[in-house]
Write a protein that binds this DNA or RNA. Structure first.
Lengths: 327, 327
DNA sequence: CTCACTCATCGTAGCGCTACGATTTTTATT
DNA sequence: AATAAAAATCGTAGCGCTACGATGAGTGAG
């Protein structure tokens, strides 16, 4: 910066000002400064800037895993919008472990970030106290309906289960199963199950619950399905905790020669790209992946400019039931 | 830090030393300092530390997209290994745009990172000069065989095409097609095509090339396949640029009643989880997703300790052809 | 042509930490 | 007990920038 200033024949302060608020510098000097910057290949030191101004352009985002098209689509959108506003994302993944989340929060907070985005409402006590003690804006995403720390952008997972169950009840299915990734890993799947079961049982139907042990994996899914159908041959519809599980179920049905939806109806969650093309096309629920990212950026930016009314801090983006031929 | 020092009755220097190299502080003070830290909930300021030591614990990683299980698996592994060594990942995605990559490099370099990980060998002139002018360790990943900037960890995409072609030639297929995501978006798919075509044509076979327009998407894939087969009904094998495309092809075959592999054989790339469970199970090529992450971490850490011999800077991790019933 | 006023530029004092040499304390040796 | 050597602790001077009040240049009115 010193060097740039010398070459442009101005003081370092002016260079700094030019970098931060270019229109407050006369165009004559602005040009000289820009020329000097280009010539020297000068890159400002973000850390020094952050230290001096005691705020940073960092926004931390913590997701369970980035190997999952759900969160990664949100991340990508969020990144695009926040980068456009001059922010840098610091991404951490908890691998579905609350303690890792706590570590990550600690680690990210040491950057004194401008904001923090977490997935869901489940955090350790320590995490909560860390977050409430600092006054960093926090967004909890991908869920809705519980007490949030600050801002919330998501949707209700119970509603998803409810929508699918209502659809299945309407279609006349009563002997159903809920085939799920492990609840311990994916707490929100448990909410979807709750929603599904409440409606199904209220309508006089039954729900058999089966959880996968490891990461959801189409092979294990096939095995679980065979066991389930051997034990409960009357099952006529299966609600899967996500599209990947549903895909595994569809493959197994094809392998066993069980026709979909006549022998058994199937529904997933996620509305992943391939669901439109399975044979038959898959009924699923479309979560607002990108919208979540977009709205988080919006709320966060408004909050950082201090004009976010309390009334708009919680956002339920809803979901859309996509009915196709598999049910 | 000041406060911690006062509470623990030592100087700030000692607190700093304790934080950086705890075993150089007597256990008596170490305990007092830790107690003070806990009591005050002290979190060190990473920016101040980075500024003062003029090096940071940041490692930048730039991938085309994180919405892709290829890169995200590598990212996850890389993150785990580097975090264990005290580094923080700064992730950027280029959305397959070289200019965005340049911007990202600039933005990440302003953090003066300890290292930088890029995807592939294609960069703008400016990017190259930025990278060569600084002495930041650079890793180029997910490719191999071209001239790298510094370290390289990946595998040859031509080899992948070659392996699939050799397998298909061996099985007697000669009227083939290569169905691909857009080469502009995915430059490495073009290498796979080259490898495939070289071998297939050398064996007297033919290759029809078809590129998808947008993001790979199973619906568009189906359309493209129908057109292709209408135009070239003699086609007996299709090599797809990745598993998702191959899945779209398999669905369309099922819909059309074309038996796999009798009417047409199919191969993909990626060895994604679902490939083992499709009907029939899909022939594909397994890339060393996690290994790439692991080895990048290893090379980078060795390099940062200055003991990476030049001979070990380039790493071809190879791939594995996974032959299943679809071909 | 002067004066008050506005806008552009500059100088200085930190931001919170680390590096490093100076100083003090502890330990080992005779 | 005295001394050297080693280990632990401390004080000071920045790291590269920004914030902010001080200074200088430019502008229009009288």
């Amino acid at each position: 910066m010193e060097e740039v200033a010398q070459l442009a024949d101005v003081s370092p302060s002016t260079v700094s000002l030019y970098l931060r608020r270019p229109d407050e510098v006369s165009s004559r000097r602005a040009e000289k400064i820009q020329a000097a910057i280009d010539r020297l290949g000068y890159l400002p030191n973000t850390m020094a800037g952050g230290l001096a101004s005691s705020r940073s352009n960092v926004i931390g985002v913590i997701v369970p895993t980035i190997t999952n098209s759900f969160f990664s689509a949100t991340l990508e959108t969020l990144e695009r919008h926040l980068r456009a506003a001059g922010y840098q994302l610091l991404i951490g993944n908890t691998e579905f472990d609350e303690l890792r989340e706590e570590e990550l929060i600690r680690s990210i907070m040491s950057w004194n970030p401008a904001g923090l985005v977490l997935t869901g409402f489940q955090h350790t006590r320590k995490s909560l106290s860390l977050l409430t003690q600092s006054d960093i804006p926090v967004v909890e995403m991908w869920d809705y309906g519980k007490q949030g720390l600050d801002m919330v952008v998501g949707f209700s997972h119970q509603t998803i289960g409810r929508l699918v169950a209502e659809h299945m009840v309407h279609k006349g299915y009563r002997h159903t199963a809920f085939l799920s990734t492990n609840f311990q890993r994916d707490v929100r799947a448990a909410d979807r199950y709750q929603g599904f079961r409440n409606v199904m049982e209220a309508a006089g139907g039954q729900v058999q619950l089966r959880e996968l042990v490891g990461r959801s994996n189409t092979e294990e899914t096939g095995q679980l399905l065979r066991d389930l159908m051997a034990e409960r041959p009357d099952i006529d519809a299966i609600c899967c905790s996500n599209d990947m599980v549903a895909l595994g179920v569809m493959f197994e049905c094809q392998r066993q020669g069980w026709s979909i939806p006549d022998r058994v109806a199937i529904a997933g969650f996620g509305n992943q790209d391939f669901t439109a093309s399975t044979v038959p096309p898959m009924t699923t629920v479309d979560p607002p992946r990108e919208e979540i990212g977009r709205h988080i950026a919006r709320l966060l930016l408004a909050r950082l400019k201090n004009d976010l009314p309390d009334a708009e801090k919680q956002l339920d983006l809803g979901v859309r039931l996509v009915i196709r031929e598999s049910s």
